[in-house]
Design a protein around this nucleic acid. Structure first.
Lengths: 380, 380
DNA sequence: ATGAAAGCGCTAACAC
DNA sequence: GTGTTAGCGCTTTCAT
């Protein structure tokens, strides 16, 4: 209707020249208006915007990218899981990216993906992103070490050491070891002689970090370090681990690397007649939405995904827009241990080999309303 | 190093002409090779690929998009939540999109976002996507009905009726009503006189669908339709609902619109002395990863996000690549009710007003190992 | 404060 | 089978 090419199919999107013509200015002026450049009179700006509105003009991003060499988009590599941690981080990233005016492109790396991280990053590079976020990468078999593709955009790695070298690499989401440590110390403070660890899959850096925090905390307090059981993040693996641990009367406290495993673990313990928290205390990690409502309500470490995403992206965008400048400093997120009903002091020591069931804990029965978010204390 | 512009900064990405020159062919031939077009001799193809490899050539997508008018990317609008359902769907979508050779752009609509769906779609249109997936939209206040922006690309709406008109609109992820219905019928089959419903927020179409299935099932069987309680998907809201329902001795079966609410509900019931499943049966929806490991293991409706995503995207891509062709038909996903321990026949009827605790269920105590995935039956 | 001209790196249509 | 010629719709640089 507007531009008379004759074809009715879909009336060809208006271009900036069309707007310029209608507004009676040059095409460049339209460009100026849309880029908020200075030196456009208010009157002209108004005319241009009005013409654009009338035509339903949207600027063509491909042309823009081609001419400017920047796509104004950020790519994120995530694992293709709906696991609470990675999914929450992704949502946090999206929120911030949009706020900063960039577009978001997403690719997944599946566990066992042959191309893996390199493939994912390559695909983003193909798409021409201005920066890359790698969220919770896992260790690749074989492709250990450097990426084969040269990465010429800034990269933000959330929750892991550098998987490769790029022009600029930033880190974020550290401090999981400190968080784990706070969990362990909570249990030691309650009087547990030591704490067992149900670790996450060690190909995940997140799992390694938590293991490391556990190790460090026990070492710092001169405690025994019992053997580690490795799960796969799933409640099923936590359940399997629980069956093992239930058989060992020495176990009075367990730190699980995520809440799902903690829930499976608690179930297995309960089925074996070892009550939580009376006989065994359990701490999880993540603070998933149901953590306060399972039985017993789970003591756990809350991750602040939004904060982590926000802080990391601020630094990434800074690096994109100020290529020569110094990288902004990272800051460890605060540790936030949420104490609920799954932890309490250990049962009194007694000669091994005798089965017994101790009295109920003071005021901690299942009839207490779960603290909505209550009982949380912030360490560090 | 290769192209001598003198600047060492970052040695300017090679272009297809550079490859052409090195391979001793025309630039167009390079284009042919990279687009897998026919009519290139094996020998030339080899030379081109080798030259490209040597130069580290990656084709410029902005230029490609500008010249061809297609971005080879699909945009997805999701809610900015890590809720299991939406997050799983997003992951499913990503997986399929990559397989089909498209890139994925993601924008969120936050609840209460002023721009809302229109803003999100507009932002994708700005980015120049070839197709749009709208995942689980919620009803917008005010902006009811049509989008103000013209959408000239095919749109796939997952889990909702048409929020607007576009050139092509496809639907997917229907059938939630049938799934809800299967859940209700499972409870009726067990002998419950009727089933209460803890609904999701009714601004979500997914919540409406489940409510509708509940309503239809009760109507079909001529049962009472008790008042509906509306939650917000959270375990906390399920807990609140549970306190209400616990006070009503008539309640013997509850269908919760998602698992998180079901878990909160069960906790509130337990605290009020109403055991699940002995006194009250509960069915959830989603089959979240921990559903089999909470106490009691949750009977729930499993959603097949991968299938839904795959099926929907196949149709979307078809619509993108065959603009004139008939839309591929949709197919309802199969209903998959996973029966675990949170449901059983109702306790024997007795005069109202008397409190009692009935015997334990036959072989259904907490010491049964949770069926990993067991006890599932597929309806419809 | 505004405009003219020259590409950005590719694909499309046609020639050979 | 391969090359040539034009743009795609912007941003950039430089004039004015």
């Amino acid at each position: 209707m507007t531009r008379g090419t004759g074809r009715e199919q879909s009336p060809a999107a208006p271009r900036s020249v069309d707007v310029a013509r209608l507004a009676g200015v040059s095409q460049k002026t339209v460009s100026r208006v849309f880029n908020d450049e200075p030196y456009v009179s208010a009157e002209v700006r108004r005319r241009v915007l009005e013409a654009a509105e009338q035509l339903g003009y949207r600027r063509n991003n491909a042309a823009r990218a081609l001419a400017s060499g920047r796509t104004r988009s950020i790519g994120v590599v995530t694992l293709g899981t709906a696991l609470y941690g990675p999914a929450s981080l992704l949502m946090g990233v999206e929120r911030v990216v949009r706020d900063t005016g960039y577009a978001l492109r997403v690719v997944n790396t599946m566990e066992g993906d042959p191309a893996g991280l390199a493939g994912a990053v390559g695909s983003l590079l193909d798409q021409g992103v201005d920066g890359i976020v790698i969220s919770e990468p896992i260790e690749e078999e074989g492709a250990e070490g450097d990426l084969t593709v040269p990465v010429n955009v800034p990269v933000l790695v959330l929750g892991a050491p550098p998987p490769f070298t790029a022009s600029t690499v930033l880190y974020g989401a550290g401090g999981a070891d400190l968080m784990a440590r706070a969990a362990i110390e909570h249990l030691l403070d309650l009087g547990h002689p030591t704490v067992h660890h149900l670790a996450g899959p060690q190909r995940w850096y997140a799992a390694k970090d938590r293991l490391e925090g556990w190790r460090a905390a026990l070492a710092a307090h001169g405690r025994d370090r019992p053997p580690v059981i490795e799960g796969d993040w799933s409640a099923a693996s936590g359940y399997a681990a629980g069956r093992e641990l239930a058989a060992d009367p020495e176990v009075t406290a367990v730190f699980a690397a995520n809440d799902d495993m903690a829930i499976g673990l608690i179930r297995a313990l309960a089925e074996a007649g070892r009550r939580v928290p009376e006989d065994v205390s359990v701490v999880g990690f993540d603070d998933i939405p149901v953590a306060a409502y399972v039985t017993p309500p789970l003591t756990t470490v809350r991750q602040q995904f939004d904060t982590v995403a926000q802080e990391g992206l601020k630094r990434l965008v800074h690096a994109i827009e100020n290529p020569q400048a110094e990288a902004l400093p990272a800051s460890d997120p605060p540790v936030h241990l949420v104490v609920r009903a799954s932890t309490q002091p250990p049962p009194p020591r007694r000669p091994p080999g005798r089965r017994r069931h101790t009295a109920s804990r003071p005021g901690g029965g299942p009839h207490d309303p779960p603290p909505a978010n209550g009982g949380s204390s912030t360490h560090h």
